[in-house]
């Protein structure tokens, strides 16, 4: 395990590397205060600094944020072939990263995995704020196929704001060495590969059969401009989850609400998870 500490303008940031199945996963810890977990969505964690929502929450919380295998520099793991492999991996990583037992805010594919884990391991997370989770499918209003598009269209499907997707779709401007830029490109490709792997070809793996086991309090958040998972899916999730305590929509935000509207989402998280 290796550790690095930095301090942004207002919060301290610790970046750890934790051994995982012959490789490692990155765990970011930021801020001070009550501990809370953050599980990223389709774009992972940024190489430098913090995701905007984590930066917001770190003002008054200690946020623990692991990068799942293949995402954001965590070692790509060939063993993760089907969704149950990912759920077991999340369970293992949650223990290694100190995420287990913390209230969790989780986004998109991360939210899908968090629900699956809580269904079989209720003590994993005592409360959930889910940002545009995947996991259900309605043929009359299907989830979009983000990867049957050009890169520029993928960006628009994820967010109407270019800045929200820069970390995954643009070269890192701080890198000048050509070989470092190539490896950064490979790392971003693997992040997209891991995301695609989680949703291919249809991001529905029978969650509706297990959703009744997600007994903790759940708050749902959707961006009104979500072009990946239609905002109406909040009703579908509310219908199958037994303890939905709040349902919010954010104007102007796309699928990446944690990047598009961090202050609004942080306010919802503070109210829900305290």
């Amino acid at each position: 395990m290796s550790t690095g500490t930095a301090t942004s303008a207002e919060v301290s940031i610790t970046r750890r590397s934790v051994d995982f199945r012959g490789g490692s996963v990155t765990v970011v810890e930021a801020g001070q205060g009550p501990r809370i977990g953050y599980l990223h969505g389709m774009v992972g964690l940024p190489t430098h600094g913090l995701p905007p929502l984590v930066a917001e929450l770190a003002r008054d919380h200690t946020v623990v944020a692991p990068a799942l295998p293949g995402f954001s520099g965590s070692t790509y793991c060939n063993d993760l072939r089907v969704q149950s492999d990912w759920v077991v991996a999340l369970s293992e990583i949650a223990d290694l990263a100190g995420l287990t037992g913390l209230p969790l805010v989780a986004s998109s594919v991360g939210a899908m995995l968090a629900m699956e884990l809580v269904a079989v391991r209720p003590e994993a997370f005592p409360g959930l704020v889910l940002l545009a989770p995947l996991g259900l499918w309605d043929a009359d209003e299907p989830v979009a196929d983000a990867f049957a598009t050009t890169l520029s269209e993928q960006r628009l499907i994820l967010s109407p704001n270019r800045a929200s997707t820069a970390a995954i779709f643009e070269d890192d401007p701080t890198l000048s060495d050509p070989s470092e830029r190539i490896e950064d490109g490979v790392s971003r490709y693997l992040t997209r590969t891991s995301t695609a792997s989680l949703v291919w070809p249809i991001p529905e793996h029978g969650l509706d059969l297990r959703a009744h086991l997600v007994r903790c309090a759940v708050t749902l958040v959707w961006g009104e401009e979500d072009r990946l998972v239609p905002p109406s899916y909040d009703k579908r999730f509310a219908a199958v989850l037994p303890s939905v305590v709040g349902c919010h929509r954010i104007a102007g935000a796309g699928h990446l609400t944690d990047w598009d509207a961090p202050a609004e989402v942080a306010a919802i998280v503070r109210a829900a998870l305290g």
């Binding site: 790509y76 049957a148 269209e153 190539i182 490979v186 490709y189 590969t193 995301t195």
Partner: peptide, 19 residues
């Protein structure tokens, strides 16, 4: 359609690296 030509994961890291 270009959106069908390069789904993430189809290429190996070696092929991405080689450009």
């Amino acid at each position: 359609y270009a959106g069908f030509a390069d789904p993430p994961g189809y290429k190996t890291p070696n092929t991405v690296r080689a450009g």
